[in-house]
Simulated assay, not measured.
Amino acid sequence: MQYLKTVIYVDNVEEVLDFYYQAFGLNATELTESADYGELNTGEVKLGFASHPFAQAQFKQSYIRAQPKQPALGFELAMRCKNVSESYDKAVNAGAEPLMPPCNKNEHTQAYVRAIDGTLIALVSECTR
């Protein structure tokens, strides 16, 4: 078995794809004609976004809709950055909610933001061992 992708359900797929490009430089590799599903180029594992109506049609009541103004759901995406401070500033300027500014944790630098769709995102540097 191989881990294939993570899909996050959002209000507006195109808007979220644009945010992830502006905030993190991730390019969209797919967007359906109906704009209810899109994917980003993140390397080997795909990061996809699907619309809430798509999820409701598929799963009925089997998922909890993330609300950007409510407490975050219990997961995060972690992104490795060359410069955490610059990445943090870029994400905040693109509309991310600042949660924890860059600080040293053990042997790396780390920061947290919340994306416009409500997803927690950790920005992490390479370890300095």
Rank of each mutant, 00 (worst) to 15 (best):
G118V: 07
A111I: 04
Q22I: 05
A122T: 15
F19P: 10
A50H: 00
Y88V: 08
A23F: 00
E30N: 12
G95I: 04
A111C: 02
Q110K: 08
P68V: 00
R129K: 02
Q56F: 07
M100P: 00
D36F: 09
E39V: 11
Q67L: 05
A55T: 07
Q56C: 09
Y3N: 02
G43R: 10
V45K: 11
Q56R: 13
N83H: 06
Y88A: 13
A78V: 08
K69G: 04
N27S: 14
Y63M: 06
H52N: 03
E76T: 13
I121M: 09
M79C: 09
L17V: 13
N93R: 15
A72H: 13
R114W: 06
S85H: 13
P98A: 15
L31P: 04
D117M: 11
A115F: 14
L47D: 02
I121R: 04
T29M: 03
I64D: 10
C81M: 14
T109Q: 05
K69N: 09
F54E: 06
K105G: 00
D36R: 04
A35Y: 11
T109Y: 03
E33P: 08
P102H: 04
Y3K: 10
Y9P: 04
N27E: 07
M1Q: 12
L26C: 03
V16Q: 04
A96M: 07
V10E: 02
A50C: 02
Y21D: 08
E15P: 01
A35P: 07
C81A: 12
E107M: 15
F75Q: 00
D36H: 14
A122D: 12
K69S: 14
C103H: 15
Y63W: 15
V16I: 11
P71H: 01
V84P: 07
R80Y: 09
K82I: 09
F54T: 04
F59P: 11
T6K: 14
N106I: 09
S34A: 15
T109S: 05
Q110C: 01
T29H: 05
E44D: 10
E14C: 00
I64C: 15
A66Y: 07
P102E: 03
A78K: 08
L99W: 13
Q2E: 14
L73Q: 12
L31G: 03
N41R: 12
A28L: 06
D18S: 08
K90A: 04
A91K: 03
G48V: 00
R129M: 02
G74H: 02
A94G: 07
L99H: 13
V84D: 00
K46C: 05
T6R: 08
T29D: 04
K82L: 01
L17M: 13
T119Y: 08
A122E: 15
C127D: 11
H52P: 05
Y37W: 14
A23H: 02
L47P: 01
V124C: 02
E76L: 13
G43I: 05
G95F: 03
E39N: 11
